[in-house]
Amino acid sequence: GSVVKEKKEKALIEVRPYVEYYNELKALVSKISSSVNDLEEAIVVLREEEKKASEPFKTDIRILLDFLES
């Protein structure tokens, strides 16, 4: 629970300088966080969101995924 939350919060802070739609990304992460149990599940849902998103938000999600998977 809290470790996953920390990882996601740290990821958002780390990617902030590189993303165009930070507030939207943060809102998406919050929405996903409330419906998943762990980081792996969150990553799966983020990948689905990435497929549906259009640029440049798609790239923002990709940047976040790269950080979460590192």
Rank of each mutant, 00 (worst) to 15 (best):
I32T: 04
S34D: 14
K7Y: 15
V15Y: 01
E24F: 04
E24T: 04
V29L: 08
A53G: 02
R62W: 08
I32R: 01
S34C: 05
V29N: 01
N37I: 05
I63H: 04
P56E: 08
R47E: 09
S33Q: 07
S34F: 06
V45Q: 14
V36G: 04
R47Y: 12
K8R: 08
E20D: 04
K26F: 08
P17K: 08
V44K: 11
L12E: 03
K8M: 15
E6I: 09
V44Y: 09
E48Q: 12
S34K: 07
Y22L: 03
K7H: 14
A42R: 02
E40D: 12
G1C: 15
L39R: 03
I43M: 09
Y21I: 01
V3T: 14
I61W: 01
L12S: 02
K7D: 15
G1K: 04
S33G: 05
I43N: 02
L64G: 00
S30G: 10
V4W: 15
E9R: 04
K31A: 12
E14I: 08
L68G: 00
E14L: 10
N23R: 06
E48I: 13
F57K: 02
S33Y: 12
L65H: 01
A11L: 10
K7G: 04
V15T: 01
Y21L: 13
E50V: 08
V36D: 05
F57A: 01
A42Y: 13
V44H: 11
K8I: 15
K8P: 15
L25E: 00
V15R: 01
P56A: 06
L39G: 06
L46F: 05
S70C: 13
I61L: 04
V29C: 15
E9K: 06
P56N: 04
D66Q: 14
S34G: 09
R62F: 05
T59N: 13
I43Q: 04
R47S: 08
V29G: 00
N23M: 10
K58G: 05
R47A: 07
P56I: 05
D60Q: 02
L28E: 00
A53H: 10
L68N: 00
I32V: 10
L25H: 00
S2N: 12
V19H: 01
P17L: 07
L68S: 01
V19N: 01
E24S: 04
K52M: 11
E40M: 07
K58Q: 07
P17E: 06
K51N: 12
L39T: 13
I32W: 03
E9N: 05
E9C: 15
E40N: 12
S70V: 11
E49V: 05
L25Q: 00
S35L: 10
E50M: 14
K26A: 14
S70H: 14
A27P: 01
D60H: 03
L65M: 06
E24V: 05
D60A: 05
L12N: 02
I32Y: 03
E50S: 08
V36P: 02
E50K: 12
P56G: 10
R62G: 12
N37M: 06
E6R: 03
I61M: 03
P17W: 05
E48W: 10
E49W: 06
S2E: 12
S33W: 15
I32D: 02
I43D: 01
Y21N: 14
K26D: 13
E40S: 10
T59Y: 11
S33T: 13
A42F: 15
N23D: 14
D60V: 03
E50F: 09
E69P: 03
A42D: 07
E14W: 06
E41R: 05
S54F: 10
L28H: 00
I32H: 03
A27Y: 07
A11W: 15
S35E: 12
K51E: 13
S54C: 10
I61K: 00
V19A: 02
L46M: 04
D38P: 02
P17Q: 06
S34L: 08
E41G: 08
K5Y: 13
I32S: 02
G1S: 13
P56H: 07
P17R: 04
D60T: 03
S34A: 14
I63Q: 02
S30I: 10
A27M: 08
E48A: 10
K31Q: 11
E50N: 07
S70E: 07
E24D: 06
A27Q: 10
E49T: 06
E24C: 04
L25S: 00
K51A: 13
E41W: 03
K10A: 14
L12C: 09
I13Q: 14
R62S: 11
S70A: 11
K5P: 06
I63W: 04
S35K: 11
F57S: 01
N23L: 11
F57W: 05
E9V: 03
V15I: 08
E50L: 08
L12T: 01
E9M: 07
K7E: 15
N23Y: 13
R62D: 03
G1L: 04
V4C: 15
I63M: 05
K5G: 10
G1Q: 13
V44M: 12
L46P: 00
K58P: 01
E69K: 08
S33R: 03
V3K: 12
N37L: 05
E14T: 06
F57V: 03
V4I: 12
K5D: 14
S54A: 10
N37E: 09
D60S: 05
K26E: 15
R47M: 09
L64C: 03
K31Y: 09
I13M: 10
E6A: 06
S2G: 09
A27V: 08
I32L: 04
L65D: 00
S2M: 11
K58N: 05
V45R: 13
A11Y: 09
E14Y: 08
E69N: 11
K7N: 06
L65A: 12
L65K: 03
Y21H: 10
L68Y: 05
N23E: 14
E41S: 10
K51H: 12
N23C: 09
V45I: 10
D38Y: 06
T59H: 13
N37T: 10
V4G: 13
K5T: 13
L12Q: 02
K31T: 09
T59Q: 12
V19P: 01
K58E: 01
S70M: 11
S34Q: 14
V4D: 15
K5S: 12
E41I: 05
E55S: 04
L64S: 00
L46I: 05
P56T: 09
D66R: 11
V19I: 06
E9Q: 05
K8W: 15
E20R: 14
S34P: 03
E41D: 06
N37Q: 13
I61F: 01
V3P: 11
E14K: 05
K58Y: 01
F67Q: 06
R62E: 03
P17I: 07
E69C: 11
F67W: 11
R62M: 09
E6Y: 03
V36T: 12
E14D: 06
L68C: 15
S33C: 15
D38V: 05
L68E: 00
Y21E: 07
V15K: 01
L68R: 01
A27W: 07
V4Y: 13
S54E: 10
S35A: 12
A27R: 04
N37Y: 07
S30F: 10
L12W: 04
K5F: 14
E40P: 08
K52P: 00
V19Q: 01
K51M: 12
K8A: 15
L25R: 00
K8T: 15
E49Y: 07
A53C: 07
N37C: 08
E41A: 08
V44G: 11
K7R: 11
D66A: 13
S30P: 01
I63Y: 07
R47F: 09
F67K: 11
A53N: 11
V4H: 13
Y21W: 05
